[in-house]
Amino acid sequence: MKKRKINIAVTGLNAIDSPGPGISVIRALRDSEAFDVRIIGLSYETLEPGIYMHNLVDKTYQIPLPSAGASVLLERLQYIHRKEKIDLIIPNFDAELPGFIKLKKELDKKGMKTFLPTMVQFDARHKVNLSEFGKKHRIKVPFSKMIFSANEIGSLKEDFSYPLVVKGKFYDASIAYSPDQVHSYFNKISAKWGLPVIIQEYVFGSEVNVTALGDGTGVTVGAVPMRKQYITDKGKAWAGISIDDKKLMSMTRKLIKSTKWSGGLELEVIKTSEDEYYLLEINPRFPAWVYLSVGCGQNHPEALVKLAMGEKVKTFTKYEIGKMFIRYSYDMIVDLSEFEKISTLGEL
């Protein structure tokens, strides 16, 4: 079968110790049997490794940080579009998604497709709204509370026992064993991600995650559950294995059906020793380990491209159990001239 040529812009090129999903998404797209992809990397920092991975990324452009606002982003994307004729954009950061969701119609008019959750879906699953989300969809969620000031830390003992989890509104989570540690994490996390900071009950158990794709009508196009086997000090999976967990799959399908989720997503769940499942987070995009889905026989990023292009997609009915991913670090040697180009011209 002849592959169709398509230009796809992808963010999340930060393949670092707490990696963005971009490189995994790109690898999945490169494995596509339907598309011959040209990858346009969209980066925020000059040291995102993906910028220099020319075997995966054909050309990279710097884009403005989400704090610059949607109109500045649109202007930059239009510039890139004029040069590259982007068919589709796959944003991979939680923090940038609101900007892309706002621009969805505008981008579509200009020929740049996206396949994203709606703003309502994005907001409903937000960490700060997760308790309500759990109640609405009858899913167990650890008790959590938002705090806006360090003065509130002293009174946490009324609602929580230690350890507890201190979380940023977009990223970062640390386990605190004392009010002093909460103080320290509160300062660190609020300085990086702003307020509120979320305090969450700590649930003991094993961490299981699901990468999935919803078609926007309630259908789960694909889903692969994974258990983390090796967790870094940043809480990221360095190794994981696909598992046969029917309850987790049923929870995923139920969530996608009831929210009519559109796009990729990751469920982060704790499974207790009593086989109870607590939903910790719903990430509104593919996870950094999404390439495992390809290894298990479900190419979720490729299916997302088809959905975005308005094509019919068959739902995946099976996946390989017992497939593992093991992440590794790798030192690239890069010429200063490349770093200079991306630093001064904003493209490479």
Binding site: Q229, G240, I243, D244
Partner: peptide, 14 residues
């Protein structure tokens, strides 16, 4: 799953 080498895999838990 059991293999002749004595490797035992529980697919439900990984």
């Amino acid at each position: 799953a059991l293999s002749d080498s004595g490797f035992v895999f529980n697919p439900s838990t990984g």
